[in-house]
Design a protein around this nucleic acid. Structure first.
Lengths: 103, 103
DNA sequence: CGATGATATGTCAGTTTCGACATAAGGTCA
DNA sequence: TGACCTTATGTCGAAACTGACATATCATCG
């Protein structure tokens, strides 16, 4: 899944390239930051060979919401992503590094 | 303002030390992460000698909300803090470093 | 081809967060 | 002291987010 597909899935209107560039620098940075956290969440889950359903139980949430977290869905907040990452064992430092790492 | 006072202001029940320790490791990490972002927001504003009212205009928000952001008020999300920081010119990298820097 | 397990998508009611406003509290100057 | 500027706190209706559920899609077996 490429970045643009991810952005669209995340609920951002992305038409032609001109539309794509409509996002301001901060908006782009914010969305990509969110995508990075979502990817990291999936990475942690996959590396542990956990299912979304299992992660949902650990987090006190549902499988569908975990799927949406990993997809950086528009209905998912960064608060939720951060809380989830920390609860799954990620450290503040690791999270910060994921955020600081600019693609 | 010390960390505990900040936590209380942010809406976290903090009684004696035992109560203070009731927060799980992830909860503590999350709250401190939020406080770090709030402090960073204030730092940026003060360094530029901006008033909260001015920052509010730039962000398209209100002075009271900016005050609450800097206080890491419970009604302020990390999404809002991140969007605000980016809009004020902070880079993803800088934000990540603030988050990664563990007190 | 099913059947089974995993992941994705759509929706909803309850909760949280939002900007805005009013107003209180501090600080500084004359 | 009081006028003025800045920051803090409380509240509200509107908007966004949440967990949950149903259901769809996808992959991997036999």
């Amino acid at each position: 899944m490429n970045k643009r597909t991810q952005l669209e899935a995340a609920g951002w209107r992305v038409g032609d390239n001109a539309d794509f560039l409509e996002l301001s620098a901060e908006e782009t940075a914010f969305v990509e930051l969110k995508l990075a956290l979502a990817d990291y969440l999936r990475e942690i889950r996959v590396q542990h060979a956990w299912t979304q359903a299992y992660v949902a139980r650990v987090l006190g949430s549902s499988q569908s919401r975990v799927a949406k977290m990993e997809a950086a869905d528009a209905s998912v907040s960064i608060d939720l992503l951060l809380k989830s990452l920390l609860k799954l064992g990620a450290s503040r430092k690791q999270v910060g590094q994921v955020i600081a790492r600019v693609a």
